[in-house]
Simulated scan of single mutants.
Amino acid sequence: MIRSATPEDVPAIARLIRALAEYEKLSHEVVLEQEALRRHLFGERPHAEVVLAEQGGQVVGFALFFHTYSTFLSRPSLYLEDLFVLPEHRGQGHGKGLLTHLARLAVERGCGRFEWSVLDWNAPAIAFYKSVGAVPMSDWTVFRVTGDALHRLAGRS
């Protein structure tokens, strides 16, 4: 079953984020604060949304997403930040269920695109995404500014 997350789901979402970071060998980068997560997902001005995959009343996967905007299409886009299903629950349709749910939301909300990034080494995810019709955008490179570099760029070093 796929459902929208509620504030009561924040601990489960946090556990899944940590499990995702462990899977991606990026646990050292996690500085997750549950109250910040709660505020950013369910506060006065939510910055993202989460849908959950459940099996037998247990949360086994999640997708965190938000809207961006395509100037070329003059339409909103849906951006999938993270999708993760616990390893012991993979192959049971949860990942495809989450993607299908988000695709439906994108269509209902008039989005012109539904997109996401995937780590180059994650061959199982790449194969899965290709199997549902996604295509890699090999002519684009993601850039990121964080930490001290972000503060310098903002003129607040």
Rank of each mutant, 00 (worst) to 15 (best):
L119R: 11
V60W: 07
P136T: 13
E29F: 13
L86K: 00
G61K: 01
I13E: 03
R152C: 01
F84P: 00
A103K: 04
S74A: 13
V145Q: 14
I126Q: 15
L32K: 07
L102C: 02
G147Y: 07
G57W: 07
A103P: 09
S70A: 04
S138A: 13
V50N: 02
A134G: 12
L64A: 08
R38N: 15
Q55L: 10
R18T: 13
G155T: 07
H89A: 15
V31P: 12
T146N: 14
V85W: 01
G93L: 04
E49Q: 10
N122H: 03
V118S: 03
T6W: 10
L150F: 06
L64R: 05
S117L: 14
L37C: 04
G93I: 02
G95M: 03
I2Q: 08
L64S: 10
L78H: 01
A134H: 11
H47P: 07
S117R: 14
L80D: 14
D139T: 12
R104H: 09
L73G: 06
V118E: 04
L26D: 05
F62A: 09
R144M: 02
L86M: 13
V145P: 02
A103V: 06
G56Y: 03
L73P: 04
L83K: 00
A53P: 06
F62D: 10
R156L: 09
E22M: 09
